Each structure stands twice: as C-alpha cells, then as structure tokens.
Simulated scan of single mutants.
Amino acid sequence: MIRVGICDDHAVVRAGLKQYLSEHVDVRVTGEACNGVQALELVRAGDIDVLLMDISMPDQSGVDALKAIKARFPDLSVLILSGFPEAHYATNLLRLGASGYLNKECDPEEIVKAIRTVSMGRKYISQSVAMLLAEGAAGGLERPPHELLSERELQVFLRLAKGETVGSMAEAMFLSVKTVSTYRTRVLEKLKLSSNSDLTYYAMTNGLIQ
C-alpha cells in the first residue's frame, strides 16, 4: 500500500484527487494539507510515502516547501502536480529534489503511474520533461524572457494576462496592492512590455494561456 499525502490550496482539487486515488487498491490517501507549512507538518507525522504537492500556494510557495521538506526528509518522494507548464519549473524542481513533475492537465492515470514510480525511489520523467532535460544537456536554445521570472512574478504575470485586476489579485494572493503593483512593474520590465494587453498577447502567443 502506497501512502499518499496531498498538498493543494484548493479543497476541490484535494477532494477530486482523493476520490480518484481511492479507486486504486494499492494507493491510499493518508493526509491532506492546504499550504507549505501544513505539508511539512504532514511529512513530520511520518504517515506518507509520497507527497503530491502543488507549487502555487498563498502563504509559502511549493518551491520553498520542497526545499524545507527535502532538507529534513531527503528520502521522501515529492511529486509536483502544477498548473504551470513543465517548461516553467520542471527541470529546476527536479534539481531541487522533486521526484517528478506533472501538469494538472495530464491524464489522471499518469498521476497514479507517477506515484507508483516515485514510491520505489525512482524519478518520474514524462516525455515532455525528458525533452526539456535533453535540450538542457545539449545546451538548448536561448530561454524565452518569461522563463527568467521568479515564481511570484510568473503568478502575477499569468493572472494579469487573464484579465485579473491588481486589487483582486492582492486579495487572492494575500499581498498588498502596492506589492502586486511592484511585481507588475518588474514583469513588464523583464518582458520589455508596456501594458496588460501586451502581457495577454505575449501569454497567448507563447501558449501560456488559451
């Protein structure tokens, strides 16, 4: 029996994953967390073999949580399940100790396959991530500007590109309006753009939003 902990700040996502995983006789969800702090507490309890974790959470990013968890529990398998495309974080998170990286749009059966793989102490590398790793090993092409954004800058960028206001973003991300505005300014500077409509166009042409 593979004991799985789920960490995601959306209750509906946790519920959906728990329901789906319950259909597999060799997998059992033994704990849930909604942020990085709770994830660390879940791991400390010692009742999980695999932690299935998002990286976009309001109080502590999954990236920081991963670093903290791997520093204390280096042998724990942490499988990242993110809404961000693999190109944004996969290779970096694997270097930080993640056992695998999946996009939330993947086939549900792939999640189970990945859980089974990492529970045996192996890395789960999807075809798209394998291509990224191969490109990196070969030198690859020059990275597009959005790949140079920090995690928080990327979150702000994608929310702005989808039409969210600074005010609503500040509330949803538990940040001040001033802080979100500062992130917006940094994003525009790094991408060499001048308006929110430019951000939307950039995101659409680079396949970051539909």
Rank of each mutant, 00 (worst) to 15 (best):
Leu94Glu: 08
Leu102Thr: 06
Leu188Phe: 01
Met131Ala: 13
Asn35Asp: 12
Tyr124His: 14
Gly207Cys: 08
Glu105Gln: 15
Ile69Cys: 06
Leu96Met: 14
Ala137Gln: 01
Asn103Val: 15
Leu93Tyr: 03
Ile69Thr: 08
Val37Cys: 03
Arg3Leu: 10
Arg152Met: 15
Asp75Pro: 02
Lys123Val: 06
His10Pro: 08
Leu191Ala: 07
Gly31Ser: 03
Asp54Arg: 02
Ala134Tyr: 02
Ala138Trp: 00
Thr165Gly: 06
Lys178Gln: 09
Ala130Phe: 04
Thr91Ile: 09
Leu188Cys: 03
Ala90Val: 10
Lys67Asn: 08
Ser150Pro: 14
Cys106Pro: 13
Val12Met: 11
Ala15Ser: 13
Leu132His: 01
Ala172His: 11
Tyr124Cys: 10
Leu94Val: 02
Leu21Asp: 10
Thr205Ala: 00
Gly97Glu: 04
Phe84Asp: 13
Pro74Cys: 03
Gly167Trp: 00
Phe73Trp: 04
Gln127Gly: 07
Ala134Gly: 09
Ile115Met: 06
Leu76Ala: 06
Phe174Val: 15
Cys34Leu: 01
Pro145Cys: 06
Val27Ile: 15
Ile115Cys: 06
Ala130Asn: 05
Asn206Glu: 13
Leu79Thr: 07
Thr91Asn: 06
Met120Trp: 04
Lys178His: 06
Ser126Thr: 15
Pro85Ile: 01
Ser22Met: 10
Leu188Gln: 02
Gly62Ala: 10
Met204Tyr: 04
Val12Pro: 04
Lys190Ile: 04
Leu154Gln: 12
Ile111Phe: 04
Asn103Ile: 14
Arg186Val: 07
Ser176Asp: 13
Asp107Trp: 00
Leu141Lys: 08
Leu76Pro: 13
Glu41Asn: 10
Thr165Phe: 01
Asp64Trp: 03
Leu154His: 13
Val37Arg: 01
Arg14Ala: 12
Asp107Met: 05
Lys190Pro: 12
Met204Gln: 15
Lys70Tyr: 10
Arg14Gly: 12
Lys104Ser: 09
Ala98Tyr: 01
Ala134Val: 11
Leu141Glu: 08
Ser77Gly: 08
Thr205Trp: 00
Ser195Glu: 12
Tyr101Ser: 09
Tyr101Gly: 12
Tyr201Met: 14
Glu147Ile: 11
Arg14Gln: 12
Leu141Ile: 08
Arg159Trp: 12
Lys113Tyr: 05
Glu164Tyr: 06
Val50His: 12
Glu86Ile: 00
Asp75Leu: 03
Ala45Lys: 15
Ile80Arg: 04
Lys162Ala: 05
Leu21His: 07
Leu208Trp: 08
Gly139Met: 03
Thr30His: 04
Gly121Phe: 01
Ala68Phe: 01
Gly83Thr: 00
Ala130Ser: 12
Gln127Trp: 08
His24Trp: 13
Pro144Leu: 05
Ser56His: 02
Leu191Trp: 02
Ala33Asn: 01
Ala87Ser: 09
Ala114Glu: 11
Leu40His: 05
Leu141His: 03
Asn92Leu: 14
Cys34Ile: 05
Ala87Asp: 11
Glu32Gln: 01
Val29Asn: 05
Asp47His: 14
Gly207Pro: 14
Gly97Tyr: 02
Tyr202Val: 09
